[in-house]
Nucleic acid binder design. Structure first.
Lengths: 293, 293
DNA sequence: TTGTATGCGTTATCAA
DNA sequence: TTGATAACGCATACAA
């Protein structure tokens, strides 16, 4: 009878089997180079398993993140893959008691470690600063992201470790908390310049802020990298478009995305997975924005 | 009894009411600055109406685009919003006979004009070239996108119209078909340089290719915009990050996204909509990559 | 208005 | 193994 093209009704299947074959995705933003890559990887992995992806945004806001997750749960997703920043660890643990498992990307919560896929941001922060130090920089400014974000805290920790390893004191004057956006980088450089504290390099804890700093530098005739070296973080697409091309730390967000998808496939649908990996390692991507002195 | 928090089962609702409250979205790519904005706009509009969004990718490939749409239909989406490039007009008309309406973004198909939201690309192409001409450029090279894409064809048409309006002949030597990616821009400039035909400006039919051309120019010590003016198209986020900042044509992809979403809300869910608009108008965004001569 | 059956298109269970 | 039947949790239509 298939000749009269019979198509099973996915909704009826779901009602009867209690399985929707849909996975909820929660990201902070739909635009931005970061999440695009991540979602592309997730979607690709899931789609070839016949699953589909329902997408929601949280905008790094606690309320909206919770609403989004509620929404996905109410939609009876079989699982959720979330990149959340504002919500607490406790909430994530609690929500995972429910019947919908919530996997986390770019975040590590001890109690649900098997549901986390994260990047070793301490190592990334360490690598960035170490690269500068190995290029003989000693007076290094640091632009952090908002301190409520674990990523920002970890990257800073790595930075301090590199400093300590080379006996370089951490200087509060050369520390600035930005917003992970372009403006943050601009404000940071402006601030550093105003302290009259000299510095030869600046590590920005993401590429957007690095771009902002570069822009501010150009507007004030500070040549990069001759007068000031800059290193970013994330290796976002446009890092390669900037001039000079930005040296940065790779953030394999696509690999983390596929990994999370595969975990879901394995745990929720009993599909075989090759290797599982929970902690990803960043690496240094050398381009043109760091000069030795 | 709501105190014992009763939650309606969305699946059962769907089965009984024949309405899933889900809208399928089909885009070419999940990454890339273009689609991010578009999806963000769609999601925002739909989400506040309590609808949700199922996302699929087509990768500008005819088979995959059809598969994706089939997939969304089989998932019983109430409607589909698609940005498709490879599939034929006939197919789109035919698929719209079915019970799932599919709306088109950035594409105009006469027979289903009420389901189309598009950009006046002819006007955009015209504006770009006209701006160059008004800056006294006469020898203008043109980098097109793949000619199977309607966008590319229309932009080129606009370019030719501007040329004609000022009695400038179209020169095949200064015409190159790229891939809408960075490499396309690099190849194009390389090609133009090899013809020994002189030119003072180059219009790239999207910003990626403009970036590629700028990169190639820099590598070959051609200073922009002093020696060569460049104009792009789309006003993608990174156009503002490039150096020099790229003059370009705005493509209000976010507005088109919300418009498509509102059409769906209106047609499929009988929700009131303010003004409906089907054709959007691009405009010139002047930045730093065009110099008068 | 409030209440009660019936159907939605499957899966799963149990009997044959 | 095959075949009938009861959930699945709601809308909807109809009756009270």
């Amino acid at each position: 009878m298939q000749q009269l093209d019979y198509r099973p009704n996915a909704i009826a299947q779901s009602l009867a089997s209690n399985r929707t074959n849909s996975i909820g995705i929660m990201v902070s933003e739909l635009d931005g180079p970061f999440f695009g890559l991540m979602m592309a990887a997730i979607e690709q992995e899931l789609r070839k398993a016949g699953k589909h992806v329902i997408i929601t945004t949280g905008h790094s806001d606690q309320t909206r993140e919770k609403e989004g997750i509620d929404f996905l749960i109410s939609r009876k997703c079989d699982a959720i893959i979330a990149h959340v920043e504002a919500v607490s660890d406790e909430y994530l643990i609690e929500i995972n008691q429910g019947k919908t498992p919530v996997y986390l990307i770019s975040r590590y919560v001890e109690a649900i470690a098997d549901k986390c896929v994260s990047l070793d941001n301490k190592m990334g922060g360490y690598l960035a600063t170490k690269n500068l130090i190995e290029n003989n920089h000693r007076d290094i400014a640091y632009v952090s992201g908002p301190m409520f974000k674990a990523d920002a805290v970890d990257r800073l920790t790595g930075h301090k470790r590199a400093l300590a390893e080379f006996d370089i004191p951490f200087n509060e004057e050369l520390f600035f908390v930005g917003d992970f956006k372009e403006t943050g980088g601009q404000q940071a450089l402006k601030h550093f310049l105003s302290t009259n504290r000299s510095f030869t390099a600046i590590v920005c804890s993401n590429d957007e802020m690095a771009s902002g700093a570069m822009k501010y530098a150009r507007e004030h005739s500070i040549s990069i990298p001759q007068e000031l070296s800059i290193i970013g973080y994330d290796n976002v697409i446009f890092a390669n478009y900037l001039y000079p091309r930005l040296t940065t730390i790779t953030n394999p967000v696509d690999k983390m995305g596929s990994m999370a998808a595969r975990l879901v496939l394995q745990d929720c649908y009993q599909l075989p997975t090759l290797a599982v990996e929970h902690l990803f390692t960043p690496s240094l991507k050398v381009r043109d924005s760091v000069y030795p002195i």
